[in-house]
């Protein structure tokens, strides 16, 4: 397996995360639409999992031997595309075809056009159930795969998230880790104003999950926590990752609700790229 690269230092990973951030703002500016805030908040988590935890390889054809990542918050897919480009799963130049006619880089994940993806998401709330299906399969086939699912905080408004939380808890799906990108904002405003989901940690605990709460941009803390998740044998785990929407681009961090779903202009892109050097 090419991955995980356990020897990779967090210093080197941080450099790669920054490069992925540059790719995210570039592809969104080129597309002229999309979701920068939630892509920039999730990228560190996505990179850590793909580089240092998940077993996968472009050369491995047997899917049962590879760990699974489901992006339930489909609008954050530019972050996943950037990670794929970083790992040479897709050509870097293809990133600029995002959201354009004929591109496999659809505005939201399309599993048929890009078979690398494990689910077609974008209608929020469904990806966690799909991830649960992969985890059920791993249990039935005894593959030893671990399944990761990235969900959004706004996404936790969806009833289906809690249906899946209940069933994964019921089935004690220890092979499933949910990473909750808690960036505090959704389209219509701050999460606690739109639909307050607190106390979030207690909710997951009540459904039978082992819970962690971390800084979603601190690679050391993240690494330590994901190791603990792999050691858990009795319960599914949720990592509530406190993140900053638009992380790395100051004008986005300052106006996080606005930058949920607006692409930077060419001028804004230049400012962002300078900050992300």
């Amino acid at each position: 397996m090419k991955y995980p690269r356990k020897d990779l230092s967090n210093e080197d990973l941080a450099v790669m995360c920054k490069k992925a951030r540059r790719d995210i703002v570039k592809m969104l500016a080129e597309a002229g639409s999309g979701h920068p805030g939630g892509s920039l908040s999730a990228i560190d988590l996505i990179m850590m999992l793909h580089y240092k935890f998940m077993r996968h390889s472009p050369q491995e054809s047997d899917p049962d031997k590879q760990d699974v990542f489901v992006l339930s918050k489909g609008h954050g897919v530019p972050a996943l595309y950037a990670a794929y480009a970083a790992m040479d799963y897709i050509p870097r130049e293809e990133l600029l075809s995002l959201r354009k006619l004929g591109s496999p880089l659809q505005g939201h994940p399309d599993k048929i056009l890009m078979p690398l993806l494990k689910a077609s998401t974008g209608s929020l709330g469904q990806g966690l159930s799909v991830a649960q299906g992969y985890a059920f399969s791993a249990r039935v086939k005894k593959t030893g795969q671990h399944v990761y699912c990235l969900v959004g905080d706004g996404e936790c408004n969806e009833g289906q998230i809690w249906e899946a939380a209940m069933s994964a808890g019921h089935y004690k799906l220890a092979g499933l880790t949910v990473v909750l990108d808690y960036n505090k904002a959704q389209i219509d405003g701050l999460v606690h104003e739109v639909m307050d989901s607190e106390p979030l940690r207690q909710k997951w605990e009540a459904f039978g999950w082992r819970t962690f709460e971390i800084d979603g941009h601190n690679l050391e803390e993240m690494e330590k926590t994901f190791h603990q998740c792999l050691e858990e044998k009795e319960k599914p785990q949720v990592v509530i990752a406190h993140t900053i929407k638009g992380k790395g681009v100051s004008f986005m961090e300052k106006d996080l609700v606005k930058w949920h779903g607006v692409a930077p202009s060419q001028e804004e892109l230049q400012v962002a790229l300078k900050e992300l050097q």
Binding site: P63, D64, V68, V70, K111, K118, A119, G125, Q126, G127, L128, S129, V130, A131, Q132, G133, Y134, A135, F136, S137, A138, K141, G159, Q160, E163, A164, M166, S167
Partner: peptide, 16 residues
């Protein structure tokens, strides 16, 4: 919980 069931079935199908 039919919604959860249907999406879970999809994941099982994708896994072969």
């Amino acid at each position: 919980a039919e919604a959860n069931m249907i999406s879970t079935a999809a994941g099982l199908a994708f896994a072969g």
